[in-house]
Amino acid sequence: MFKKILVGIDGSAKGDKALEMAIGLAKESGAEIHLVHVIPWPNLPNVFPPGAIAYVPESVIQDLTNELKAKAEKTLKERLLKVEEAGVSGKIKVLEGEPASAIVNYAQEEGVELIVVGNRGISGVKELLLGSVSHKVSQLARCPVLIVK
């Protein structure tokens, strides 16, 4: 059925549940799993106060970006071990940008047939104002999206 499945990995328990679901689907269909983590650049939420980034030296921004990439790669490699232990082939990719758009663009470029993401549980007014990555992915994607609660 599916040959390529993308799983959005953010290091959360919800993301791990999405990965478990994707592994089960991949085993049934013989699919390859693409594990993707997105560094939300240039907005870097919760790192700098609004407007402060204009006053941060380029070297500090580069160091922070390198640190975030290293942490993301470590997280993805840990999840890739779970994929491989289940007898499924996989690959990892760290992306930068707005998370939903980066996930959807990667999926299109790689010919992904299913996107699996966890639901972080944002609801009500908060989701209306901020949106959620899973909701945005489901609206932008050109392939099926499975949102795991």
Results as ranks from 00 to 15, higher is better:
Met1Gly: 15
Phe2His: 13
Leu6Cys: 06
Leu6Val: 07
Val7Arg: 01
Val7Leu: 02
Gly8His: 01
Gly8Met: 02
Ile9Asp: 01
Ile9Gly: 00
Asp10Pro: 02
Gly11Asp: 01
Ala13Met: 11
Lys14Asn: 12
Lys14Ile: 06
Lys14Met: 08
Lys14Glu: 14
Gly15Val: 01
Asp16Met: 10
Leu19Pro: 01
Glu20Trp: 06
Glu20Ala: 12
Met21Gln: 14
Ala22Pro: 03
Ala22Asn: 01
Gly24Gln: 13
Leu25Glu: 13
Lys27Leu: 05
Glu28Trp: 11
Glu28Ser: 12
Gly30Cys: 08
Ala31Leu: 04
Ile33Thr: 03
His34Ala: 13
His34Tyr: 12
Leu35Tyr: 04
Leu35Thr: 04
Val36Lys: 05
His37Met: 04
His37Arg: 07
Val38Glu: 04
Val38Phe: 04
Val38His: 04
Ile39Glu: 04
Ile39Gln: 03
Trp41His: 13
Trp41Leu: 14
Pro42Leu: 10
Asn43Met: 13
Pro45Gln: 01
Pro45His: 00
Asn46Thr: 10
Val47Cys: 06
Val47Ile: 13
Phe48Val: 11
Pro49Arg: 06
Pro49Gly: 03
Gly51Trp: 02
Ala52Lys: 07
Ala52Met: 13
Ile53Arg: 11
Ala54Leu: 11
Ala54Ser: 09
Val56Cys: 03
Val60Ile: 14
Ile61His: 03
Gln62Leu: 15
Asp63Gln: 15
Asp63Cys: 11
Asp63Lys: 15
Thr65Phe: 15
Asn66Val: 14
Asn66Met: 15
Glu67Arg: 15
Ala72Asn: 00
Ala72His: 01
Glu73Phe: 14
Lys74Tyr: 10
Leu76Tyr: 02
Leu76His: 04
Leu76Cys: 03
Leu76Phe: 05
Leu76Arg: 03
Lys77Arg: 14
Lys77Asp: 14
Lys77Phe: 10
Arg79Ile: 06
Leu80Ile: 06
Lys82Pro: 08
Lys82Ser: 15
Lys82Thr: 12
Lys82Trp: 08
Val83Thr: 08
Val83His: 08
Glu84Asn: 14
Glu85Gln: 15
Glu85Val: 09
Ala86Arg: 06
Gly87Ile: 03
Ser89Phe: 12
Gly90Ser: 05
Gly90Phe: 05
Gly90Pro: 06
Ile92Ser: 08
Ile92Tyr: 12
Val94Ile: 09
Glu96Cys: 05
Gly97Trp: 05
Gly97Asn: 05
Glu98Met: 13
Glu98His: 14
Glu98Trp: 13
Pro99Val: 08
Pro99Leu: 08
Ala100Arg: 05
Ala102Arg: 06
Ile103Lys: 02
Val104Ile: 06
Val104Gly: 08
Tyr106Met: 09
Ala107Phe: 05
Ala107Ser: 09
Ala107Val: 06
Gln108Phe: 09
Gln108Pro: 09
Gln108Tyr: 10
Glu109Ala: 12
Glu109Trp: 12
Glu110Phe: 11
Glu110His: 12
Leu114Ala: 09
Ile115Ser: 02
Val116Asp: 00
Val117Cys: 00
Val117Ala: 01
Gly118Val: 00
Asn119Cys: 08
Arg120Met: 09
Arg120Val: 11
Gly121Trp: 07
Ile122Asp: 05
Gly124Trp: 04
Val125Ile: 15
Glu127Met: 07
Leu130Thr: 10
Ser132Thr: 03
Val133Gln: 01
Lys136His: 10
Val137Phe: 02
Val137Gln: 02
Gln139Asp: 09
Arg142Phe: 09
Cys143Lys: 09
Cys143Tyr: 07
Pro144Asp: 11
Val145Trp: 00
Leu146Cys: 14
Ile147Pro: 00
